[in-house]
Computed example of a mutant assay.
Amino acid sequence: MGSLDMANDEERLLWQQWLSLRDADTRTRLFFHHSAWSRTVAGYYYNRYPHPLAEWHDYLSLTSQGLLQAIDGFDLLRHVRFRTYAEPFLKGAVLKGLSAYIKDQRPIVRERLEGIGSEQRFGVADSDFELVVNSAVDLAFGYFLELGVIDETPPDNNPLSAYVQQDKDQSLGLLVERLPERERQIIVGHYYQQMSFVELAGLLGVGKARVSQLHGQALRRIRKLYEEVGGMEWEW
C-alpha cells in the first residue's frame, strides 16, 4: 500500500475519502492534519532563506499555499509518503513567493477588525468607548495567539518571563482546542498558518463574510473561556 502503510489510521481514512470524493471537507481536514508539520517547514525556510522584506507571517502563508497544492496533486499510487511528496511544493511556494515579494500594507489587521466589529455585540446603552475597548481586547487575544507561535523567546531573556509566556501560550492553545470545529479551523488557519480570510473562505467553502463572522465569534469565545478559568493580567 506504500504511503498508506506509513500513515496512521486517521490519515489513511482521509486519503481514501479524498481519493474517492475529492470533497472540500476532506481537503480541509487533510490540510489541518498536516498544518503543524508545515509550520515546522516554514521555520526551516525562514532561517535558511532569510529575506530583507519578508516576515515570519509570509513564510507561514506561503507554506500553507504549497501544502494545499500538494494535497490537490497527491496520488496514493505513487507509493511515496505524502510529506516527502509535498516538501518540494512547500519549498517552491516559498521561493516563488520570495522572488516576487513586494512589501505592501498587509490587509490582515483590517480583516481582523472587520470581523470583530461586524456584529452588534452590545446593547443600545453601551457607549462607543465601551465598543472600542471590547474590540481592542478581542483583537489583543488574536495577537496573543499569533505571538504564541512567533515569539518563542521573551525579549528580556528572563527565565521567569519565559515560563509565564509558555504558560499563557499553552492555556490559549487549550482554549483553541475547545472551540467548535469551524471556529477552531479559522483560528488555526488564520493565526497559526497565516492564511487570509479570502484563502480560508476558499478552503472551507464559505463566503469571506462568514469567515469574518466566525473569526469574531471565536475570539470572543476564547476571551470568555479564558476569563472563566482565571483570566490574565492585562498590561496596557
Rank of each mutant, 00 (worst) to 15 (best):
G2I: 15
L4R: 01
M6V: 12
D9I: 01
E11C: 01
R12K: 15
L14N: 01
L14E: 00
S20I: 15
T26R: 03
F32Y: 14
S35V: 08
W37Q: 03
W37D: 02
W37V: 13
R39T: 13
T40W: 08
A42W: 05
A42V: 10
Y49Q: 04
Y49C: 13
P50L: 10
H51I: 08
E55N: 11
Y59V: 13
L60F: 11
G73P: 03
F74G: 12
F74W: 15
L76V: 15
R78Y: 08
H79D: 15
R81F: 06
R81C: 07
T84H: 14
Y85F: 14
A86H: 13
A86M: 09
A86C: 10
A86V: 15
A86Q: 12
E87C: 13
F89S: 08
L90Q: 08
V94I: 14
L95W: 07
K96P: 06
G97P: 08
Y101S: 05
D104Y: 08
R106D: 08
R110N: 04
E111T: 00
E114A: 01
I116M: 01
E119Y: 10
Q120L: 08
F122Q: 02
V124A: 09
S127D: 03
D128P: 10
E130Q: 05
V132T: 06
V132N: 03
A136G: 11
A140P: 02
A140R: 14
E146S: 13
G148R: 15
E152I: 15
E152A: 03
N157Y: 12
L160P: 01
Y163F: 07
Q165L: 07
Q166P: 14
K168L: 10
Q170D: 12
G173Y: 08
V176S: 06
E177K: 11
R178Y: 02
L179P: 07
R182M: 03
R184C: 00
I186P: 09
I187H: 08
G189V: 11
G189L: 14
Q193P: 02
M195Q: 01
S196L: 01
V198L: 10
L200M: 06
G205N: 10
K208F: 01
S212K: 12
L214D: 04
L214T: 09
H215P: 06
A218I: 02
R220D: 00
I222R: 05
R223T: 02
L225H: 05
Y226A: 11
E227L: 09
E227K: 06
E235H: 13
